[in-house]
Structures are given as C-alpha cells and as structure tokens.
Computed example of a mutant assay.
Amino acid sequence: MYQQKLPIVLASKSPRRHELLKLMGLDFSVDLKDVDESYPENLSPAEIAVYVAEQKATAFGDVSGKIVITADTIVALDGEILGKPRDKVHAYEMLKALAANKHEVYTGVALVKDNKMHSFYDVTEVFCRAVSEEEINFYIDNFKPFDKAGSYGIQDYWGLVVVTRMLGSYTNVMGLPTERLYDELKSLS
C-alpha cells in the first residue's frame, strides 16, 4: 500500500485530475507554472504526451522535499492529434470525426521526487457509435467541451451515450491513469 510521506503538488488546473487524486486518498496542493506546450513535430502521440508532461515538471526547478505530478492528455485519431477545440465549429468537426470510429487517448505523466524525474504514459483505445448532427450540437451546446482534448469528456454525456467500449484505463481517458500512478508512487517510496 502506498503511504504518503511527502507533500504532493499537482501541477494541473483540471478538476478531473483534482477529483481523481482525492478519490485516491492523496493529500495534495495545486501549483501551476506557465509552460510552452508546443512539441517537436517528429514525435508520436505517446512521446508528445510525455514530452509536454516533462516540460511542465521542468518548470518547477528545485522540488526537494516533495513530489510534483504533472500530466498531459492527447487524443489521436488515425495518428492525427486532436487538441482542445478553438471554437464550436472546430469542436463539431472533431466530434463528427470521432463518431463511428476508434481513437486513442494517451496521458503522459511526470513525477519529480528529490529533483529526479520519472515519466511514463498510458494509452486507452476508445470506440464511439455513430451520432447525428443534432446529437453533436446538443452535446456542444449543453456540455461546452472547449477545455477538453478531442472535444469530449468521458465522464459526461459523450462518454455515457456515445462511447460504446474502451480497451484500457477509464481514468486515463479522464486525464490521469490512476492505476499506473499508484504503482509508480509506490515505487518512489
């Protein structure tokens, strides 16, 4: 069992990540740093997620006496990265592309303890049913998914009504693979 001995800092404004750490029984504070989230173009989706998580961790500098957790979630459809939508039209285009298709969700995580960084990623395959234009517009208008990679949240209407199955971690699709994070925190003890 993981016994928390050091303060944990979560570098994320995501309410979903906050909720997941609370559900894991962890005591943590939140601290955010401004980070350039651009990445080299030759990276795979998994490498992008880890690269950005590591950039977020590096922004903290000296972190002795605590554990810093950073994460980045990437949605990929046929190798194309679907980031956060710019506007309603962009969200509609992404959701229409995801409908009746399979896509992957990658979350890169960086843990820093005693100024040593340890990174990993998890991937989940997500399958969606076909949806109508009306359903997509209903989702965008009522759930406003503008802060979410791929324009959807697994924990809301899209995940409940459109996603038909997943292969991999549910919490990874929420933005933090808690099963793997727990094991990694134990290994740092």
Rank of each mutant, 00 (worst) to 15 (best):
Y2S: 05
Y2H: 07
Q3V: 15
Q3F: 07
Q3P: 07
K5A: 11
P7K: 10
V9S: 08
S12K: 05
K13Q: 14
S14C: 05
R16E: 03
H18D: 10
E19C: 13
L21A: 03
G25N: 00
G25K: 00
D27C: 12
F28A: 07
S29K: 13
S29F: 04
S29Y: 08
L32G: 07
K33E: 09
K33M: 13
D34T: 06
V35S: 02
Y39K: 06
N42W: 14
L43G: 05
P45N: 03
E47A: 13
I48E: 00
V50A: 04
V50E: 10
A53Q: 02
E54N: 09
T58Y: 03
G61F: 03
D62L: 08
V63E: 04
V63P: 02
V63L: 12
G65E: 07
A71S: 11
A71Y: 04
A71Q: 02
T73I: 01
V75F: 07
A76Q: 04
A76P: 06
D78W: 09
D78C: 08
G79C: 09
E80M: 11
I81F: 08
G83T: 00
K88W: 06
V89E: 15
H90L: 10
H90D: 11
A91M: 12
M94N: 04
L95T: 09
L95W: 10
A97C: 11
A99W: 07
A99K: 10
A99L: 13
A100S: 12
N101E: 15
E104S: 13
G108K: 01
G108Q: 06
K113Y: 13
K113R: 11
N115D: 15
N115H: 10
N115L: 09
H118L: 13
V123G: 03
T124P: 10
E125S: 15
F127V: 04
R129L: 13
V131Q: 05
V131D: 01
E133C: 14
E134R: 15
E135Q: 14
E135T: 08
E135S: 13
I136H: 01
N137Y: 04
N137W: 06
F143Q: 09
F143I: 09
D147M: 08
D147N: 11
K148F: 07
A149M: 04
A149N: 03
G150A: 08
S151K: 04
S151N: 14
S151I: 04
S151W: 03
G153I: 02
I154C: 08
D156S: 13
L160N: 14
V161N: 05
V162P: 01
V162W: 15
T164G: 09
T164Y: 14
R165F: 13
L167P: 08
G168N: 07
S169N: 12
N172Q: 12
M174T: 02
M174N: 05
G175P: 02
L176C: 05
R180M: 11
L181P: 01
L181M: 11
L181A: 01
Y182L: 06
D183C: 06
L185S: 00
S189W: 10
S189T: 12
